[in-house]
Design a protein around this nucleic acid. Structure first.
Lengths: 190, 190
DNA sequence: TGTACATCAGTGAACGCGCGTTCACTGATGTAC
DNA sequence: TGTACATCAGTGAACGCGCGTTCACTGATGTAC
């Protein structure tokens, strides 16, 4: 049943992709290796042909999720720089649709508190992704990318991650939406 | 081996207390009922004399953690109102000591992304706690507690929760501390 | 106040279950000649 | 280009383990008279 190198690489990519979504949807602890493999259309035994451990998969899935996030934020900005680009990014991130789409969303909001207790490798990957998000936001604030712009970007990133996390916890949809609304307003006022 | 009513109530309180700390230190999923009971000096079998399920304990532990948090924020403000009180609260929350003390810290930063997937009961409890934190912050911003003050309080709360979560993920202590520093600065500038 | 009995907090073994990981096996793919 | 052999992706059973929960049992506490 050996597969070709191309198929093997595709399978591996599919596992990371599925894992990245499942982890965000259900949490790192609650998602099992067997769940991921089943969702990828495979039996669980083959997992260790691709990854050394669940922890390594978490690290790769985290990296993949953050890369996707950055891509979607760039797409939201849609080539616009400055105020308009930032506004578009903030609007996309602080939307009820992002709040409600766990599997596609930002991993920092989705599994942030589990990343705190993840492996050093995963935390390094996450830290790198955070730095890239901050860089992207800073570029919108001031393309010359000064220290001040990066500092402000950190502030905005923290507010966005906290807002979506809190909005997802609050069961009442209106109260939840108004948290997103409040934070959006204050980020835009700056 | 039956215990008196007073002892029973004390035991129950001790279990909630230990659980509240263990959950924040190790996460909701990673902390077992047996872990909590052992830490409370009991065998696991007696757990169900006090609680209907692990989920109910989570709800109570979450409530307890939030009550403690609000108390410590009030203590940080130390009777001061307005700018000084707010500054004191923000300084306490965005400190490296809060970052490094998982078990004693804010449950929204500690287990926020797990609360998203917690029971309705737990999420209601958490939402109530969030509302109280917002109220406390709003009172510092403007004691007349207008809608605007509450909206700004939501923004500050989101930024603080996001900042501590992100700071805890970043492995490098200096990079992590500068996230806290950046957010602190911008909250104070408002 | 004293006695007889019911209650129930806590113990420790056991339940079924799912976890991460390992392994013998299979057969198609890759490699060496 | 064709053949013989080594490799290894994927399968499915099995490993030990810890989970949340249940239960028979114990003996001290609470209650009724």
């Amino acid at each position: 049943m050996r597969k070709s190198r191309v198929e093997t690489a595709e399978t591996r990519r599919r596992i990371v992709d599925v894992a990245s979504r499942e982890f965000r949807a259900n949490g790192l602890h609650a998602t099992g290796v067997a769940d991921v493999m089943a969702e990828a259309g495979l039996s669980h035994g083959g997992f260790y042909r691709h990854f050394g451990s669940k922890d390594h998969l978490i690290a790769e899935a985290c990296e993949s999720a953050l890369t996707t996030l950055i891509g979607s934020l760039e797409k939201a900005a849609d080539g616009r720089n400055g105020k308009d680009g930032l506004k578009a990014i903030v609007n996309a991130y602080l939307s009820t649709s992002h709040r409600d789409r766990l599997a596609d969303g930002c991993p920092l909001a989705g599994v942030g508190s589990e990343l705190v207790r993840a492996s050093e490798e995963t935390r390094e990957v996450a830290a790198q992704g955070i730095a890239e998000v901050v860089e992207l936001l800073a570029m919108q604030i001031d393309p010359r990318r000064g220290k001040a712009a990066r500092s402000e970007a950190v502030f905005i990133a923290a507010a966005m991650v906290g807002a979506v996390t809190i909005a997802r916890i609050i069961p009442d949809p209106d109260a939840s939406a108004s948290v997103l609304q409040d934070v959006k307003k204050h980020v835009e006022m700056r």
